[in-house]
Design a protein around this nucleic acid. Structure first.
Lengths: 211, 211
DNA sequence: CCATGAAGTGAGAGTAACTGTCAAAAGCCG
DNA sequence: CGGCTTTTGACAGTTACTCTCACTTCATGG
């Protein structure tokens, strides 16, 4: 229960050259996050107050707010989005779009497998707590905005192109729904398979007629 | 400024047979809403407190919360969604899907033209205030759920069909983005035209190659 | 190695969105 | 009119979040 996989403890790669200050910052950050996860599992989201989180993480409430602007952010913030974007940009330029998307989404699922407990907790909260769901949607729409940039770049269109933006946000919307579906089903089904089906729907426009 | 078009004052149709109680309820409801709109235009969203709203609407703060669970809801709640759903269901069953959607979306735009000021204010807030945007997205996802039911019904599929849900939510995502785009552009462009372009994107899958 | 500056932390006071309770007021109905 | 139900307002309480200020802790250049 407290043996929750740490998301980003200092690996050998980034440990040595950071100053003591930076290392401490990372420590408190993850301390706060893990305190939060643990408390939420014990008591649920709403019942968990910032004060409790602060106490368990051994920092002051002020500090919690310094690290995370809102309570939802403690749960939701992750560092994956930029990685995904990078991954997408590094795909060969002549690869068909749907393939690129499939690949990147696949990678995302892979990565989230490493923190399966966290992923599950998030999915569960997204399902149960409206505030978290709302924040999640908002986060995804930001991701969508970045995705639109990548898409526009590759398609040689302007960032503000309506068509690109509509396309990316509809993609995001579809993916969000998969996540929700998965959470509703108790996270028993294979996320990868679900995503595959979703992408198929998105590729083919509408599931007009099934013969 | 205070001459904002009332959304739903008692028209001849629903006035007479409602009891005094019901009529009063409607009155306070719109009083609260209009007080809110006015205050927000004067001072902005965050600067407007529930207390001020209550004061101007001449009710107690408690009452405000009784009518609207959150501050965002005062701005966002409307009665159109059920109408749209109904409209959708009443379309001929053999009409192509995209046509039905086009029609219903068109109707929605028509109706929002009647409350243009309100529509603009909402779009503006969605753009500027994260909390409102989040709530809006959440609302839209609820709408998406209902839409999925209608779609499933018509397609002869289960309500929980993944494909249907992904399709509808991607639709919603795309439409939300149009709204956002429109708001960002100062609401100068023709919303109807934008929606048309968006629907075209959604119909044709991806804007792969423009020759 | 220590003095000076910068960054991070904690304590506390304050705001505002909600929640729950209870008694008074207002519409309902025989 | 008189009892019954619904609605309202007053109030107290919780909690997320903000701001300010004094204090500690790290960085660094002499």
């Amino acid at each position: 229960m407290t043996s929750m996989t740490p998301v980003h403890t200092s690996s050998a790669a980034d440990g040595p050259r950071l100053g003591l200050r930076e290392r401490k910052k990372i420590k408190t950050r993850t301390a706060i996050r893990e305190a939060t996860y643990a408390l939420i599992e014990e008591q649920g989201y709403e019942a968990t107050t910032i004060e409790q989180i602060a106490e368990r993480a051994e920092v002051s409430p002020s500090t919690v707010f310094r690290y995370f602007p809102t309570k939802e952010d403690i749960v939701l913030t992750d560092e994956y989005d930029p990685l995904m974007l990078q991954e997408l940009r590094s795909r060969p330029a002549d690869e068909p779009w749907t393939d690129s998307v499939r690949y990147v989404v696949g990678r995302a699922v892979q990565m989230s497998d490493q923190d399966l407990e966290v992923t599950r907790l998030r999915a569960h909260l997204m399902n149960q707590v409206p505030a978290v769901r709302a924040r999640m949607l908002e986060t995804m729409s930001v991701t969508g905005r970045m995705l639109a940039e990548a898409v526009a770049e590759r398609a040689g269109l302007g960032t503000d192109d309506l068509e690109v933006r509509v396309y990316t946000m509809s993609l995001i919307g579809g993916l969000a729904e998969v996540y929700q579906y998965w959470a509703e089903g108790g996270m028993r089904e294979d996320l990868h398979g679900l995503l595959d089906r979703a992408l198929t729907v998105l590729e083919q426009g509408f599931p007009a007629k099934k013969p």
